[in-house]
């Protein structure tokens, strides 16, 4: 009976070290009451950063090239005359080129600048550059660059009951579908295959 401790630390009890929201052991510190919100904010940010860093750790990163066309990395050409050869040498690969991602047929691909809000629901915002591939055969459902009575427009191509329509993608309803009729001068200039935009 005398062996039973009363009060004090019970080993193995409580939350395990490192399982809290910060993912590491914590400690108690006295801080001025007035600074508490600031420090709480700081800790919240610290915690977010921590979580993000963990995501980064498991994500494969694809590094885009800085100079899309001008960089030519010498593959397998490094000379190692002495010492331990670089273990990465056999794994050298070309850096990624964004235009390779965006363009299939370079001779048939053109860029246009979007203006207006009629296609915002498919992610085409004013100022975006749309990639237009003329070599693709347009099919129903494609986003197309069409010429209507001499004007360019980007819309989704649709056909229901034999009627061809150009549909906007803007759920506010501010834009109406355009029905293509015989007397219209209508031509599909190319198929929109992608878009890109810069924030800064």
């Amino acid at each position: 009976m005398n062996n039973i401790k009363r009060g004090g630390i019970r080993t193995g009890a409580g939350r395990k070290v490192g399982t809290g929201k910060f993912g590491e052991s914590t400690t108690v510190v006295r801080i001025p009451e007035s600074q508490a919100p600031i420090i709480k904010d700081f800790l919240a940010a610290y915690q977010r950063k921590k979580v993000k860093a963990d995501i980064d750790a498991v994500t494969e990163f694809e590094w885009p090239t800085l100079y899309a066309t001008s960089i030519k990395l010498p593959l397998y050409s490094s000379k190692v005359s002495a010492g331990f050869p670089s273990p990465a040498e056999d794994h050298v690969e070309k850096r990624l080129d964004p235009s390779e991602f965006l363009i299939n047929q370079k001779d048939a691909t053109f860029f246009v600048t979007i203006q207006g809000y009629s296609m915002i629901d498919v992610g085409l915002l004013p100022g975006d550059k749309a990639v237009v591939d003329r070599s693709r055969q347009p099919v129903i459902g494609d986003i197309v660059l069409a010429v209507l009575d001499g004007e360019f427009t980007i819309k989704t191509l649709s056909r229901t009951d034999g009627v061809v329509r150009l549909l906007p993608a803007n759920s506010t309803g501010a834009y109406s579908p355009i029905e293509i009729t015989e007397e219209m001068n209508f031509e599909i200039w190319g198929v929109v295959t992608g878009s890109f935009r810069r924030f800064k």
Binding site: Q115, A174, I178
Partner: peptide, 15 residues
């Protein structure tokens, strides 16, 4: 200088 694709005036019809 890229071609600019406007929304043609007549496609903006109020609903």
């Amino acid at each position: 200088d890229l071609p600019v694709v406007y929304d043609p005036k007549w496609s903006l019809i109020s609903c």
